[in-house]
Design a protein around this nucleic acid. Structure first.
Lengths: 206, 206
DNA sequence: TTTCAAACCGCATGAAAATGCGAATGAATT
DNA sequence: AATTCATTCGCATTTTCATGCGGTTTGAAA
C-alpha cells in the first residue's frame, strides 16, 4: 500500500521533478500535482491523497491559506510545507494553518521521502533550525538572557552593536583579531545565529 | 539601618575622600570602593550595596558599560553617576545603561549625601542643567529625522534589519541580487555609512 | 522635450565576515 | 586528579559584503 502524495508547486521543473522522484520511489505514488492553490482545492477533495507537499510562495492564494481550506475538505490528509527559506512568519502561519511538517527545498531526495513517510505515520518532520524556533516560541520568557554570555563576550557583542570591525574591536580590547573571531564564533554558537545582525536582534530586540 | 554605598572611582584621593565622607555621615556606610569597573564587577555581586557612586571616565571599561553589566548582576542597586562635566553623550549613555542619577564631582558634600539618600528612596537626583537636557530629549520635535530614502530603499533596509542576506532579499522581492546591491549602495551613500550595522544604527537607533 | 530620480540589471574586485579545526593557559568545580 | 569553561591565539577556506563601473526603462517634474 503506497503513500499517495499530492504536490502544489508553481515552478514546473520542481513540480515535475518531485513527481518523478516520488513515483520512482518504492512505497510512494504521486497521485496529484498542481501549479496553484486554487487548482488543488478544486480537485483534491474528490480523491484526497495521504500527504500533500505544499509550496509556501504561490501565485494567487498562498500555501498556508490553501492548507487551511484543504484541511477542512480533506481532514485525513497531512500537509508538508516546502519552501526555500526558514522564514519565521511563514513557519508559524503554516503550522497554525494546520500543516504538520516543514522542509526546505534544498532537502536531499532521500531525506524528503523520509519526511513524507514520517508525516504519514504521525510525525512532524522539520529541520533542526525550525524545530528550535517552534520550541522557542513556546518559551514564555524567551527574552534577552545575557546571562548566557560571559562578560568578555558581552563586551564584544556591544562593540559589534556599534558597528565596529573585528580589527577595531581587537585594538580596543588589546587582543588579537583571531581572538575576536573566536569570541564571536562562540557568541553565535550560544545564540544560535549566523550573522552579526541576527545576534544583535536576539540580544537587543526593539 | 544605614544606606550601604559602593564607590567606583579611579583617582585615589577622590575615592578615599568620598569613602571618608560617607562613613563619617549619619545613616551612611561605605561598604566597597574600587578603582576600576572590572574590580567592581568582580566583587560587588557577592554583596550588593544599596547605592553605587560610579565615575564616568575610568581606565579600561567605562562607567556606563559597567553600570549596564552591574544592573544585571545587582538588580536592586541604584547607580549614581559622578563626573566632572555635563557631557551630553555620557549623560544619555549612562541613563540608558540604567543609571538613575547624575551628579557633578564639584557637588558639595551635603548635597551629595542628599543625592544618595534621594536615589535610595527612589528619586533621580540630577542637576537642573541635566534635567533640562533629559526632558528636551523626550520632545519628539528634535527627534525623528525624515528618511530621505525611497519606498523601495526603505523596504530593503527593513530586510537588512531582519538579518536577511542579499540573496534572500532578492528572492523575497523578486529582483536580482545585483539590484539589491545597487539599492544598498545608494542607501549607504544617502546615509553616509559603510556597513549594514552602521546604517541600521542610524535609521533605527535603540 | 529634456531632465531626473527611482527601480532595475550585470560584472568585477578587494575587504570583511563566517566557519572549521585546532591548541594552550588558568581559574573554578567536581 | 579530572573536568569544565573563559580567554587567548593561529591558519585556512568559503561565503558574503562593499564598492566601483557600466548600463536600460519608466514615469513624473521642469
Amino acid at each position: 500500500m503506497k503513500i499517495k502524495v499530492g504536490i502544489v508547486e508553481d515552478t514546473k521543473d520542481i513540480r515535475e521533478g518531485l513527481a518523478m522522484l516520488i513515483d520512482a520511489s518504492e512505497g510512494f505514488s504521486c497521485t496529484h500535482s498542481f501549479p496553484t492553490a486554487e487548482d488543488a482545492i478544486k480537485t483534491l477533495p474528490a480523491d484526497p491523497p495521504d500527504v500533500v507537499l505544499m509550496d509556501i510562495n504561490l501565485p494567487g492564494m498562498q500555501g498556508p491559506e490553501c492548507v487551511k481550506i484543504l484541511k477542512l475538505l480533506c481532514p485525513h490528509t497531512q500537509f508538508l510545507m516546502c519552501t526555500v527559506y526558514e522564514e519565521d512568519e511563514h513557519i508559524f502561519e503554516s503550522l497554525k494553518s494546520g500543516a504538520n511538517g516543514y522542509v526546505l527545498k534544498k532537502t536531499a531526495p532521500d531525506k524528503l521521502l523520509e519526511a513524507i513517510a514520517d508525516i504519514f505515520q504521525g510525525g512532524s518532520p522539520m529541520t533542526g533550525g525550525i524545530a528550535r524556533k517552534v520550541i522557542a516560541s513556546l518559551q514564555p520568557s524567551a527574552q534577552t538572557k545575557p546571562a548566557e554570555l560571559s562578560l568578555r563576550e558581552f563586551e564584544i557583542l556591544e562593540s559589534l552593536a556599534k558597528g565596529y570591525r573585528y580589527k577595531e574591536i581587537a585594538d580596543k580590547l588589546f587582543i588579537s583579531i583571531d581572538t575576536v573571531r573566536s569570541h564571536i564564533r562562540n557568541i553565535y554558537e550560544k545564540l544560535q545565529v549566523h550573522s552579526r545582525t541576527e545576534a544583535l536582534n536576539k540580544v537587543f530586540p526593539k
